[in-house]
């Protein structure tokens, strides 16, 4: 029943999965680049923005096509609207990851300290994104709601990074610029995790038709 609509929803699910995989590949690459401060690699990752942008456009086109040709209602409509919103979140997550590569352009090496917490934060943020997409795929409310707790952990890590960098910057004024750019990188990851919780909010909307703020 409604095979065309079901097929379209499957296409959307696959596109969002592809977007998630691309965002993950880019963020991991950007973190590696931040560790090495390799500017050539940074330029490569910055150019990867187009891959995610193209996928977002494909999601938009498929959503518009399904709305125009299938007239979805109720949960079907919520799923399609949510797919559009999730793709926007993923596109923003891609931008934030690339923001880290752009930081590499500006940092004059070497790094003032070994990078431990920022890669850890990136791992946690990526785990949240994967969990959000899994919750979307399986419409698992519990997985979606759990993202709020994980977001708190990422926020906590971000605050710790800011505190640590402030201490270093106050002791070594010559690395003020670098400290500021590393703080930016932490901020990008904190925002990345917020977008992952947005995915969870959309899963809750699909399942219950209610809006819930997981970013409190």
């Amino acid at each position: 029943m409604r095979q065309s609509l079901n097929d379209g929803q499957l296409i959307l699910n696959n596109l969002l999965k592809d977007m998630g995989q691309e965002v993950e590949r880019i963020l991991q690459g950007c973190i590696k680049t931040l560790k090495s401060l390799d500017r050539t690699q940074a330029e490569y990752w910055i150019a990867q923005d187009q891959v995610v942008n193209n996928l977002e456009r494909q999601v938009d086109d498929e959503c518009v096509r399904l709305i125009a040709t299938q007239q979805p209602v109720a949960k079907d409509l919520r799923k399609i609207i949510s797919a559009m919103k999730i793709s926007t979140d993923l596109e923003r997550m891609g931008d934030l990851a690339i923001g880290i590569a752009k930081v590499v352009r500006r940092i004059e090496g070497p790094l003032c300290k070994p990078l431990i917490d920022i890669p850890l934060m990136a791992e946690k943020a990526l785990a949240m994104m994967r969990q959000g997409l899994e919750a979307y795929r399986t419409e698992d409310m519990e997985l979606a709601q759990n993202l709020a707790l994980q977001d708190d952990a990422v926020d906590h890590l971000y605050n710790q990074i800011v505190r640590d960098l402030l201490v270093i910057m106050s002791q070594k004024p010559e690395i003020l610029d670098q400290g500021m750019y590393l703080t930016f990188a932490g901020r990008y990851l904190e925002r990345f995790a917020d977008h992952a919780t947005n995915i969870g909010e959309n899963v809750i909307y699909i399942t219950t038709a209610e809006r819930k703020d997981l970013n409190k």
Binding site: P72, V73, A74, K75, L77
Partner: peptide
Amino acid sequence: FTNPHDKRTEDYITGRFG
């Protein structure tokens, strides 16, 4: 048409009935 309370209504309006 956005959030029917009964599953039978949802199945009918989304074309997944029967």
